[in-house]
Each structure stands twice: as structure tokens, then as C-alpha cells.
Design a protein around this nucleic acid. Structure first.
Length: 446
DNA sequence: TCTGGGGTCCTAGGACCC
DNA sequence: TCTGGGGTCCTAGGACCC
């Protein structure tokens, strides 16, 4: 916790709905609901006019339509939201080099890193008013709620106190009196399940939380959250504003209007999602070792299965093949409402090329034995680190193999380290491989 | 015909290693 | 006859956030 109120939290009010109202004047002053418009959709954002009727985010669209039939129901224009968000984020970065976006419509800004005339309450208050004015300018009239305090927690709580279009500064030293009467659920990380556990222990407010020992909290809600709650209910929060956060996973999923029962159809949908995921991985220069699927059954039971490769891939065919294989082990006879594919265990390609394993590391850290659907004679020809293969991209070293996949590093004496690519044994790219023939390698080896 | 989509983080158990 | 303990990786599930 800082001695000055120098952490700012900004939240754009009813963001998606506000962008729609900005761009379509006929919607201004009217209830607008953005979200899934199908039979299984949920509300992403409701305009304040719709909230009056009890519509709120995460509510099913069916329920929202029942409460507010005359609202405009829109499926969303994410391009417009991203564009508007980018304008706000770049404004924030003009103000301070230390900006941590939390989503399209929310961010923390570290004012200690900003160029302010002073950091007293009066200074940051004036700054907050000016910032909200500038947000309206760069967004074409969108309003924001801003909170400023001595920590992320306090700033975030503060931005919620005067929504919409508000500014709340919490003077240093007044945090605990502000927090004590509040419900424990204002603490980020305390959702319905945790709130219920706390309630059963007689804990409703932050003051109640303060009266519980740390050991008891850990017993109630687990180690990590227990320690976190013990600190936060005392307004102790030293979490820094972090400008850069690495992507940890990339995924795509879909909920279907009617439960799926046809396995071929499910495989086709997984393959399409795999292409989508692989495309986004490549766009960001990423590749990952762990491929997961998510399956939500008709009764909302949610299953996940994953498998980890010896080396990272960003190949749609590899992701798709593994995803389909994972699905094969699940019983889906009752019907499936949601299917999804994800890749995690991400590596950065560029970094991989610059700092990837050299020959000695490769020996110290051998690839796992290949899966048994790799024909043994072919696999011997593709032993990691030893063989040269040919593809239409040119010659490369076999870098890894396993689970029906061969990974190639395109690296030659002439060109230096190149990209790493994985090829599924049963996809068309496989035909590009030629196990080195006895006479060929000498001529073509790097 | 209740219950999205894209993420993050945590927990717990088993395998494996030293 | 005894039967470590810590660390890391992997998998599955769950809670939570916007």
C-alpha cells in the first residue's frame, strides 16, 4: 500500500452498449442489450436504460427478453469495440507509461509513473476529472468511471462507487473505514462459491473477514485465496501495476443451438476451431505444446482433456488431429452443447529461435519416446536431432517427435536458425517428408 | 429450451526424479 | 522391517473475471 493515492482504475460505462448508442443515434436513450442473441445466448452488456428493467450481464438473453422485450438486442461489433478501446488505451499510455489493461473496457494506470504536478489528493482529483474529459473526447462521447487510491484493490472498489460517469478518490489512511461495512463480495476473487463458504462461517462483510484468523481463512477457502483475503480485508495490497502480461493460452469454443450427437460433425467443428486457434497463434508469433478440448454435455457437465507434445506447434492440422483424438475417448451419447479447443504451454517463436536448444542441450533433454502410432521404421528415420528431412519449405533437422507428430527445425548453415514446424503424420503435409535415403543426405545436409 | 466466450489462477493427485 | 521429502511436470476440474 502506497503513501499516496497513485493507482487509478478506469472502467468505461456499459461499454459495448455505449458504443452502439454512439454509432446509432436512434438507440440513444433506449434500452440496448449486447450479447448472444440466439436461444442460448447471454447478455454481455446492458445499457443503463435496460438495467432499469433488471437486465444485467451474464443473464440469459431469454430472461432479458422477458424483462425488457422492447430493448434492441444486438450481437455486437467487436471491431468497433476494439478500435474504441485502443483509442482509450493509447490515451492512458500518453498519461503514464505504466498501464495495465484488464479487458477492452478496463485498465489500471500507475500515477506514480505519470508526470503530475503533485500526488496529493487535490492533484489526482483534478487529474481524474481531466482524464474523464479526454476519454469523452477520444471516444466520441463515452463516459468512464474512475477510482483512485493507494492500491489496485482500493482503486477498483472506488471506481464502482459512483457509476456511471463518476470519480472517487480515496484519501490515504481512510481505506479501512471505507471497506469495513462493504460486503466481502467486493473483493475480486470472491464469487458465488466463496461467498457461500464465507456466509456459512458467518462472514458477510469485510469487517467480519477481518475478525477471522489467517489460518481459519486458509482452512475455509484454500491457501492462496485465504492469504489474499487476510491481506485485502485490511486494505493491504502491494500488487504492482504491470504493463506487460504474457498470453498463456489461446482457445476457441462454441455453444450450439441444439445439442450435437453426430461425432463426425463434432470432429468437423473441432477442426474448424483448431484452424481458428492456429491462425491466432501464428498471428501473435506463438506456438504451444499442450492441446486441450472442452466438452460441455447436455446436462452442463463440463469435461476437459489435454495432451502435451514434446515440442510446440502452431499447425492447424496438428491441433485438429490431437483434438479429435481427445474427443474419441469421451462418451458423448447424451448430446453436447459446447465444444472447444485450446493451446497452452506457449512458447515464443522468436525467442525459441534465438535461445533454443543447441545440440548439447538437445542431448541433455531428449524428446520423449514417440507414440506408438508412429511406424517404427519411419520413426527411426526421424530420430530427433539427427536426421535431415525435406519438405517444400526446404531441408530441416528433425527436432522432436511424438504422439503422431514430427517437429522440424528449419536450420541450415547458410540461413541460420529458422522456424520450428510440426507435421501430423496423417495430414497432407506428411507426404512432404522423405526419410533421408542412404545417398541423399550428404549432398543436402546443412 | 436457464446458464457465452476468452481468458487467468488455483488445487489436488500421480508420475518421476534426486 | 523400515518406507524421506521436496520439486517439477502433467492432467482434470473448478472458481472467477470481464
Amino acid at each position: 500500500m502506497r503513501s499516496h493515492a497513485s493507482v487509478l482504475h478506469i472502467d468505461l460505462d456499459a461499454f459495448f452498449a455505449a458504443v452502439e448508442q454512439r454509432d446509432k443515434p436512434s438507440l440513444r436513450g433506449k434500452p440496448v442489450v449486447v450479447g448472444g442473441v440466439g436461444g442460448r445466448g447471454v447478455v454481455a452488456t446492458a445499457s443503463y436504460e435496460a438495467r432499469v428493467f433488471g437486465v444485467h450481464s451474464a443473464m440469459s438473453t431469454r430472461e432479458a427478453r422477458a424483462r425488457c422485450p422492447h430493448a434492441a438486442y444486438l450481437s455486437g461489433r467487436f471491431h468497433a469495440y476494439r478500435e474504441t478501446s485502443a483509442a482509450v488505451m493509447s490515451l492512458l499510455r500518453e498519461v503514464s507509461p505504466l498501464v495495465e489493461p484488464l479487458s477492452l473496457d478496463e485498465a489500471f494506470v500507475d500515477l506514480a509513473a505519470a508526470d503530475l504536478p503533485g500526488h496529493e489528493v487535490a492533484d489526482v482529483t483534478a487529474f481524474g476529472h481531466d482524464l474523464r474529459r479526454r476519454v469523452r473526447e477520444v471516444t466520441g462521447g463515452l463516459t468512464a468511471s474512475v477510482g483512485i487510491g493507494t492500491s489496485k484493490f482500493v482503486a477498483k472498489v472506488a471506481s464502482d462507487l459512483d457509476k456511471p460517469d463518476g470519480l472517487v478518490v480515496v484519501p490515504p489512511g481512510t481505506e479501512q473505514e471505507l471497506l469495513r461495512p462493504m460486503r466481502a463480495t467486493v473483493i475480486p476473487g470472491v464469487g458465488p462459491a466463496t461467498a457461500e463458504r464465507l456466509r456459512r462461517a458467518g462472514v458477510h462483510t469485510i469487517a467480519d473477514l477481518e475478525a477471522v484468523s489467517e489460518d481459519e481463512l486458509v482452512r475455509l477457502v484454500g491457501r492462496s485465496l485465504g492469504h489474499g483475503l487476510h491481506a485485502l480485508c485490511r486494505a493491504r495490497d502491494d500488487r504492482p501495476v504491470q504493463a506487460e502480461r504474457e498470453t498463456k493460452s489461446v482457445s476457441a469454443e462454441g455453444t450450439y443451438e441444439e445439442d450435437l450427437t453426430d461425432r463426425r460433425l463434432m470432429e468437423g467443428l473441432l477442426s474448424r476451431q483448431a484452424r481458428d486457434v492456429a491462425e491466432r497463434l501464428r498471428k501473435h508469433g506463438l506456438s504451444g505444446r499442450t492441446v486441450s478440448i472442452k466438452v460441455r454435455l447436455h446436462d452442463f457437465t463440463t469435461l476437459s482433456r489435454s495432451t502435451t507434445l514434446g515440442s510446440p506447434t502452431d499447425e492447424a492440422a496438428v491441433v485438429a488431429r490431437l483434438a479429435r483424438g481427445l474427443l474419441a475417448d469421451l462418451d458423448t451419447t447424451g448430446g453436447v452443447r459446447l465444444l472447444g479447443v485450446g493451446v497452452s504451454g506457449l512458447a515464443d517463436w522468436v525467442q525459441d529461435e534465438l535461445f533454443g536448444p543447441d545440440d548439447s542441450e538437445r542431448e541433455a533433454d531428449p524428446e520423449p519416446e514417440p507414440a506408438l502410432d508412429v511406424p517404427s521404421t519411419r520413426h527411426r528415420a526421424w530420430a530427433p536431432g539427427s536426421d535431415v528431412v525435406h519438405t517444400e519449405l526446404g531441408p530441416g533437422w528433425v527436432w522432436g517427435s511424438g504422439r503422431g507428430v514430427v517437429t522440424v527445425r528449419f536450420e541450415t548453415a547458410e540461413t541460420g536458425p529458422g522456424p520450428v514446424r510440426s507435421f501430423a503424420l496423417d495430414d497432407p503435409a506428411l507426404s512432404l517428408f522423405r526419410p533421408p535415403s542412404p545417398e541423399a543426405p550428404a549432398a543436402d545436409a546443412p
